[in-house]
Each structure stands twice: as C-alpha cells, then as structure tokens.
Design a protein around this nucleic acid. Sequence first.
DNA 1: CGGGCTATTGACGCCTGTCAACTACGGTGG
DNA 2: CCACCGTAGTTGACAGGCGTCAATAGCCCG
Lengths: 225, 225
Amino acid sequence: MDKYQASKCLHCPIRSKIYCSCLDVENLKDFSDNAKHETFDKKVIILSSGNEINSIYNILDGIIKVYQLNEDGNQQIIGFLYPGDFFGSHEGGQYQFFAETVSQAKLCKIPIKKFRIHLSKNAGIRDKFYEATTNELSLAREHINILTKNSAEQKVLDFIRMISLRQHKMGQPINPVHLIMPRIDIANYLGLRLETVSRAFTKLKANNSISLNNFDSIIINNAIS
Amino acid sequence: MDKYQASKCLHCPIRSKIYCSCLDVENLKDFSDNAKHETFDKKVIILSSGNEINSIYNILDGIIKVYQLNEDGNQQIIGFLYPGDFFGSHEGGQYQFFAETVSQAKLCKIPIKKFRIHLSKNAGIRDKFYEATTNELSLAREHINILTKNSAEQKVLDFIRMISLRQHKMGQPINPVHLIMPRIDIANYLGLRLETVSRAFTKLKANNSISLNNFDSIIINNAIS
DNA sequence: CGGGCTATTGACGCCTGTCAACTACGGTGG
DNA sequence: CCACCGTAGTTGACAGGCGTCAATAGCCCG
C-alpha cells in the first residue's frame, strides 16, 4: 500500500507544475499517504460555497469551472481550471465558491488538516502556495481586463487567446484551441449572452481571425491585433 | 529621533487596521526606524509597472487608484485604495501595476528589504500579509461581479454601495457616500463611458435610489434591491 | 469676470439582449 | 438500423441601451 501510494505521487503527471514540486522524497511519501485520486463525471459539483473546508484538490485531468452566486442567485463564473491547477484552499472556515467539473475529471484530494501541517512545517510549500495565490490574483485581473473590452467580438477573441496560452502552459500547442466548456459558460464568464457569443464566433470566422474545425476546436489565424 | 520614530508608529491612526497590528513594541520601534511618512498631491504617480520593487506603501490618508495598461496602452483601473490599505508588494522583481493618488494623500513608505526581513522572521506579519492578498482576491472577484451586471445603472449602484461599505469599514457612516474619484475613473473601473455613468446617476436620482448633495456626496436611499 | 476642467444632456447609430425558430449532434429505444 | 428526443449551437427579427460626437452647464481658481 505504502509503496503504491509513494509511487502515486512520484509518477504524478502534474507534479512539476504544482506546489508538490518542492517536496523531497520523504515528504512526498507523506503526501502520497494522504492523497486520494478520484474520478468525476462532467457537471458534478465538487464543492460548494458555504461548506466547511475539508480538502484541497489538485487537478490531474479535465477542466473545472469555479463560480460564485451573486446577490440575485445567478451563477458567475470566475475561472476555468486546468490540470496543474488546484482549488479548495484560502483560509477561513468555509469555501467561498463553487467548483464543478466541465468535462470528466480526475482529481487528487488531500485532507485540509494534513495539508496545513505541511504548510506549517515546510517553507517551500508555503512560498509556492503564496505564489499560487498571487497567480490567481493576476488571472482575476486578466479577467477584469477582458470584461472591460467594449465589443463582444474582442472579448471572445481575448478569451480564445487566453485558453490558447493556458493550454500552451500545459505543454500543448497554441493551435488548435480546444474550448471544452459550452458556449453558455463562455458567455457567463464574459458577461454576455450565449447568442452574442455565437454571433461573435461567426464574425471572427468571417474576419478570418479564427477558423473552426468543430465547435470546440479552433484555430487562431492571426496572433496579432 | 528614535523616540519620535517610535511614537510615529505608536500613534499611527491606521495601525489597528493593518498588518502592523500584530507587532509588539520592540518590532514596532524597528518599523518606525524604517518607515517614512510622505505627503503627495492629487494625480501623482507613486509607482509604475515595470519599475524595480523598492518600497511598500501604507495609506494613512487619501485615496489611491491602482491600474494596469492593457495591450492597447489604455488605462484599466483595477481598484481604489483607502486608508488602511497598502500596496507595492507581491513578489517578483517588478511592480505589476501603477499606483496614483486620486486626492491629496499621506503615505507611510517602508523599504522592501527591511520589510522582507520582518516577513521572514515574523509569522504574524506573514499571515496578515497572506490574508491581505486573499482579501485583494475577493475584491477583484467583487469587481468581476459588478462588471458582469448588464445594465449601467446596476453597475453604478453597485459601485456606490461598494464604496459605501468601504468607508464604513473605516469607521465612517454608510451615508453619505463620498465619491472622491472623478466620473471618468468610475467609468473606467466599470467598463463604461463617462457619459453613460453620468446618465446612470441621473436615472438613479429619478428612481429615488440615490440623492445627490454634490457631485461627490451621495445618499443611498434604499439599502435593498 | 474669464478660462479651463468636469459633469450633464441631447441626438443618433450600432451593438447587444431578448424571444423565437431552426439546425446539428448524440443517445436511447423500438 | 432508424426514429425520436433532448441538448447545444446558430441565425433571424426587433427593441432598447450604450458608445460616440457635440453642445451646454456648473465649478474652481486665477
């Protein structure tokens, strides 16, 4: 069992891209003992705002959307997470957001109590973790930048570029861009309606800014402008 | 000199609302020795994106706007800071944003090297600092929530409420709300044009949602809806 | 009193939201 | 294998809201 667990983290496909990268073999084994891999179907809510924080999740495979409910009870998507991202932390007793699978997903789940022990005794993890938070902050600000663009076409193009860079960071090519999430989620993220997003795609095709293979496979024709 | 410096932090009007609150007398004196108070006119750029990080600033009095330049070179305001807020940190070698005074402002400036020494040896400050970063993150998400509202009227009303809460956190009453920043900055923050913001104010007055004393002194008539 | 800056208001065209119809794709059951 | 249905995406028509350009009003400061 121990052997299997240790190898689980040792052979983790995303370890180099996450806070665990700073762990030595000893600590990694400790992590392995506590980490549990789970697979989820699409459209499954992993955690909900207001629930007691009990675990932190690393994404091994698949895409997760993170959203809040605004005062009217409407969903507001604040981000899409990819393999190598994690979610579920951020002090305080309760989760401040919802996390839901967009596609089928494989997650690595670590009890928050165990995780906090690592945080307290390992400065490396602490730093990585702080870094991850500031990274979230810059993603939020990038989101803000997109939201203040004044045409739907520009917002959608920026969105596609953002996803393109995101998948590039995971070692995949810039093109084609795979938009796994449905149009309605893109629209929500951009503060638009799905019809408007659909029209923006049509215009971008007409512009030759992009080409579509399928709904979800897009080629950005011009890196500029 | 030392005596004056120590009393500077001891009598600091915002100390209870900032990371310094966790300092004991000894460390406070150390802070005092390094902290420098400076007064700035309105519309003065305190720090610029891309510049080497050399100081961290606490706001003693006045309002600061924080902005980025997007790819077109346009200003995008990402926040307004009030007394008790600070800015200038966030690891990496360079500032990632611009900070500019909106009103006349009084700041407390601390060399980053000295500050990092405190960070490394004082867990209390470290925690407070991490907390401040997550707080920034939730402010950014609140901003995102406002930006996705689909009417200008709603955006402006949300903005006024946000500022109202902000000044309440500083111990001032909810009403009247003082909008120190010009309409053009509000418009920029909300992703609108200043004419649209102006019209939104007019509509909100007609609705009886708000009343205006002056341009910058506003009463929210109905806390609900 | 005059000049410059900021805010408001007006006119108009375009873009986005809304409602609705239609198409494309995938899965299920006969 | 095909018919059917449900879900997701596209397209159309129309009205209202926002951006744009322009003129006017209000305020501060010299």
